[in-house]
């Protein structure tokens, strides 16, 4: 039995993440699909410290831990090295949080997207800098509490639309994934894994300590985020062809918001704004999909 088979088939090794961490579930299922011919590049953040400390590791494949803004560039280097040595079949998996992707790593990310590097970039998005103790990132949703958007000064800016940014680079594949919809997630990872060029998966990653939510609610919140149109499941091919992969129930956002302490300071007006934004975003995705169908 190889190390990969041993780790993938057993829960023995565990990990160092907090109870209810979404990132670890996501990594496990992504690796399940990609298999042992994978190399992980991971920057500073929860992913690096919770998966790194032996023997508490769920990544039975090579793992390169790089500085915070370095994920994309380091991945490009590995890709070049593998290609030169004839190992084109090996997947280079960039595995970075939202701070490392939406903020400090945005320049290098844009660069590998523009060059259409043969990399699978996964952003596990827990919507703040959680590893340093909950500071806002540009992936933090509007109205959210963090230590740098404290009560009285909640975040007023909406979350950066990473899908639109990636689509603007016309990369072959972009998709959103949720740990509550594993079939959908595995379909997308399989699809991305078989493609060449730059692929980006935006992974919804619940964080109980940062969201001030019950650890047992992680999957419920992930499901609600999808069903309330906060985090719709969709994919974009070649930066143009939009496709929703799950028809949302369109539940009220309040169901999602009220289970999380980070949203406890929201006024009714702000909740309405969040509802409107969610509905509009879902409507936009539907119209983009329909436009594609009618072509």
């Amino acid at each position: 039995m190889t190390d990969y088979e041993f780790c993938a088939g057993h829960d023995l090794y565990g990990h160092m993440a907090c109870p209810g961490c979404g990132e670890k579930i996501l990594l496990r299922h992504v690796l399940d699909v990609l298999g042992p011919e994978t190399i992980i590049v991971c920057p500073a953040g929860c992913g690096a410290v919770t998966d790194g400390i032996f023997p508490h590791s769920i990544a039975p494949v090579p793992f390169l831990h790089v500085p915070f803004g370095a994920t994309a560039s380091a991945a490009a280097g590995i890709r070049a090295g593998l290609d030169m040595s004839g190992r084109e079949e090996v997947t280079v998996l960039a595995w970075a949080g939202d701070g490392a992707t939406f903020d400090i790593g945005m320049g290098p990310l844009s660069a590998i997207a523009e060059r259409n590097e043969n990399i699978l970039y996964c952003c596990y998005d827990n919507e703040a800098y959680m590893n340093t103790g909950v500071q806002r990132s540009s992936a933090t949703p509007v109205g959210s509490w963090t230590t740098t958007t404290p009560r009285g000064h909640l975040k007023t800016e909406p979350k950066k639309n990473i899908g639109a940014i990636m689509a603007a680079h016309r990369i072959p594949y972009f998709a959103t994934c949720s740990p509550a919809f594993l079939d959908d997630l595995k379909m997308k990872v399989t699809r991305a894994g078989k493609m060449k060029g730059m692929r980006f998966l935006h992974l919804f990653s619940p964080c109980p300590p940062g969201w001030k939510s019950d650890p047992r609610d992680g999957i419920t919140l992930s499901r609600l985020a999808v069903e309330c149109n906060i985090f719709p499941l969709y994919e974009i091919l070649d930066g143009e062809k939009y496709r929703l992969t799950h028809r949302s129930q369109g539940l009220p956002v309040a169901e999602y918001l009220h289970k999380q302490g980070r949203f406890r300071y929201l006024s009714d007006t702000e909740k309405k704004i969040i509802q409107t934004d969610a509905d509009q975003f879902y409507g936009l995705l539907v119209s983009r999909q329909d436009r594609e169908k009618n072509r």
């Binding site: 701070g99 103790g133 740098t148 404290p150």
Partner: peptide, 20 residues
């Protein structure tokens, strides 16, 4: 103008709270 990093994040957090 700050950015989170251990062990200096608390300076940033105090300023986020106090400056406004």
């Amino acid at each position: 103008g700050g950015y989170p990093i251990t062990p200096a994040t608390e300076v940033t957090e105090v300023m986020a709270k106090r400056l406004p």
